[in-house]
Design a protein around this nucleic acid. Sequence first.
DNA 1: CCAAAAGTGTTTGCAATACACCCATGC
DNA 2: GCATGGGTGTATTGCAAACACTTTTGG
Lengths: 243, 243
Amino acid sequence: MDIIPNLSVDCVIFGFDSKNLNVLLVDRTLFDKNKNVVFSDFTLTGNHVLAGEDPDEAAVRILNDLTGLHDIYMEQFHTFGSTERLTREKDQTWINHLKLNIPQHVISVGYYSLIDANKVKIKSHNNRKVRWFPINLLPELAFDHELILRKALEMLRIKLRQEPIGFELLADKFTLTQVQRLYEAILGTKFDARNFRKKLAQMHYVVPLDEKQTSVRHKPAKLYLFSREVYERSRRDRFDFDI
Amino acid sequence: MDIIPNLSVDCVIFGFDSKNLNVLLVDRTLFDKNKNVVFSDFTLTGNHVLAGEDPDEAAVRILNDLTGLHDIYMEQFHTFGSTERLTREKDQTWINHLKLNIPQHVISVGYYSLIDANKVKIKSHNNRKVRWFPINLLPELAFDHELILRKALEMLRIKLRQEPIGFELLADKFTLTQVQRLYEAILGTKFDARNFRKKLAQMHYVVPLDEKQTSVRHKPAKLYLFSREVYERSRRDRFDFDI
DNA sequence: CCAAAAGTGTTTGCAATACACCCATGC
DNA sequence: GCATGGGTGTATTGCAAACACTTTTGG
């Protein structure tokens, strides 16, 4: 299949493990002929856009290639086109070593995706190790991937304050404390539990179930689910209202 | 100069004329051999990205080509990659008629720019008429340019609520009422003058001058200017403060 | 019975809203 | 002197923030 040579897609895959916000990264270790490590760092997952392929589809394809997951929340957040993106010495060494057929200048469309980290069980991809990293304990990153990741995080934070996308990072059924930990992890803040719950209580699309946690060694928490239908309805109502 | 064949940049040029928020559009009228009009609509201004050119630079180049202006506020807001972007019959007719060498599938990076409409005096560009249109009186648009424009406006509204970018649309010296009209035009709302001024008064980067309007047939308004220095400082202070 | 997290109300301060009249200028 | 927009203060309401103790379960 033909590719568009100067265009790629990079995916920032965010996952929440009920404690930290994590990013899924792929090991990039380069060995010389004697199997000594020349350098070792990590990359986001990305790929070319195919000829006649919408970059949105490419992003879905790339995410699915790596994780096997479908129907994942994805958001295009920025396009990176600096002419210096791939020109660092280390990056050129890597490209030459693998004989990758990459032009000097590739423009990359950035997407982030939100998944429940517990749903993903990947150990390696194309012989490269795959690992979660908490966003405040990142390893060294290849190319301009640190820039891409920081921008993704910035855009995620903005989006999170405007739309209830956080639930994409949780299991279908969740507790209110999990929601709070999630918001704290993404925004890097602490919230007061009572005030946070008061706010959630006003969001009618967070609907309580007749169900509680089991086998926890403390008072079991009520479970909730996120109703997209109720959310869309309440949003329309709001738009109808103000003029 | 070589181009990247599948990549282009489209610019949504917003201008404010102290009453409406406007977009600068370029006439696209197609004539047949007898000089009858086949169709007539408008386009945003866009162009290919050159080989080895950062799309950010391409956007600056395109804006400058059209308006002759430099140092204009520009913001990349979304990348459009649908495979159907250019496939409407009208658009294909246009492409064939002008013998434009455009592939079937072009991905376009969208930028919006903010300028004081009074600074721009363009009548035509490449033999095509150039006109301002108020955003709530748009003509029919070519390709997917309506989609692009709506997205630009949506992103502008979001940005405007977070950063004081509105001043880019005003002259260096402006009155508080002009600021209010601007915000009303962009956000499509009305504000109470007293409350609006109270809010502006808290923004120390809106600094009063010892100067008033002249030759207006009403009480002359005090003039203000936007200080980026003060804004950046106050922003840093705020970040230092919360943790 | 102890550890661990769930769950719950009230007070306080600040920010957003609503609202009406006088002022300075050009014609 | 009149039409036009400039400019100003106060009272009310709603929302965000601060804050401490009891409850339920498993081990």
